[in-house]
């Protein structure tokens, strides 16, 4: 493994570390054969390599096992879950067929999709210009707005849920899509603004200045220059707020009551009710839910972390 070191970077360091005895880093691959006290960053013994891979393989197994197991159980028929370690009887897709045709699952899926998409659209559209303004401009109220945005990230569900429940009840919006979307916006709008500020921070200020020199107004600079550059950031923000709404449990559980209005996070619970636990159906639904979200997630995750942490490290 240690031969994989990058020669260009490694050579000066190895030479320096090896001192006069070193032969210009030619033996970089030899591991521990050279007489030296300190091992460089890019070298390691075969034993260390084995340990490294061992640790990573073990961690990967832990990470992947529940997901593989979920797929396995979903393919084992209705009662396959009662024999958790046996594979006799083979695999079948009857659970999927049942869930898609005989239950409310497609309806819940559509509900979740609608609510999450609505939340995301509103969140991103409302928050984009604010993210830009707090990233670039210093105006009276800037500091307090930053504070408010930060504080809203700390809101526990319990702090707003009772009041929102009563307000929505007064307006007749309980058990409706609009009510739930509005509720989710109380989370997603500040979050999107915060996250997009992080992205706008990474776009060089020179671009703004160029826009100003060319006679664009601040709005023009934002819409014509910065927004197109921030598209990846917008996409990631949208995705993350989508996923948050998609998996929200507390509000959905409290506000939705009609069976056909439920979102997935609440609806799935009815598969494992008090009388009979249908883990076969539940896992099949779980797989269907996870695949699209998971695929997109893996595409965007690199940018996701940057966005989540950028606002905090600079703010």
């Amino acid at each position: 493994m240690s031969t994989a070191t990058e020669p260009r970077k490694n050579a000066p360091a190895a030479r320096a570390a090896a001192g006069p005895a070193g032969t210009a880093g030619a033996g970089a691959g030899a591991g521990g054969t050279r007489p030296r006290k300190v091992r460089g960053r890019h070298e390691r013994s075969p034993l260390a390599s084995a340990g490294l891979h061992g640790a990573l393989i073990a961690a990967s197994l832990v990470a992947v096992f529940p997901i593989v197991y979920m797929v396995f159980i979903s393919l084992r028929g209705r009662d396959g879950w009662t024999r958790p370690t046996s594979a006799e009887g083979g695999l079948e897709i009857s659970n999927y067929a049942y869930v898609l045709s005989e239950t409310e699952f497609p309806r819940w899926f559509a509900n979740s999709l609608l609510v999450a998409a609505g939340t995301t659209l509103i969140g991103v559209f409302v928050a984009a210009s604010t993210g830009y303004a707090i990233s670039r401009m210093r105006f009276p109220g800037h500091k307090s707005l930053m504070w408010v945005l930060l504080v809203t990230q700390m809101f526990p569900v319990a702090v707003l849920i009772v009041a929102l429940y009563n307000i929505l009840g007064d307006m007749g919006l309980l058990d409706s899509y609009i009510g739930l979307v509005l509720t989710y916006c109380s989370v997603s709008v500040p979050f999107c603004a915060w996250m997009m500020k992080g992205y706008f921070d990474t776009i060089p200020h020179e671009i703004d200045e160029a826009g100003r020199v060319d006679g664009l107004t601040p709005f023009g600079t934002f819409y014509r220059l910065i927004l197109p550059l921030a598209k990846p950031g917008l996409a990631v923000t949208a995705f993350y707020s989508f996923i948050t709404a998609w998996g929200e449990v507390a509000f959905a559980r409290a506000f939705l009551s009609t069976d056909s209005m439920l979102t997935l996070s609440v609806g799935l619970q009815s598969f494992i009710g008090q009388h009979k636990a249908e883990w076969g159906y539940l896992t099949a639904s779980a797989v269907i839910i996870s695949i699209p979200a998971g695929l997109v997630f893996l595409l965007v995750q690199r940018n996701l972390v940057a966005g989540l942490t950028a606002g905090g490290t600079k703010g």
């Binding site: 707005l145 408010v148 601040p218």
Partner: peptide
């Protein structure tokens, strides 16, 4: 222009967070 840009979020926060918070 800065205030105009942050206005939508301030409105949303006022209606969806501050008002319920006060009620809470």
């Amino acid at each position: 222009y800065a205030w105009a840009m942050v206005l939508p979020v301030v409105l949303v926060i006022g209606v969806l967070i501050a008002y319920p918070l006060v009620q809470g």
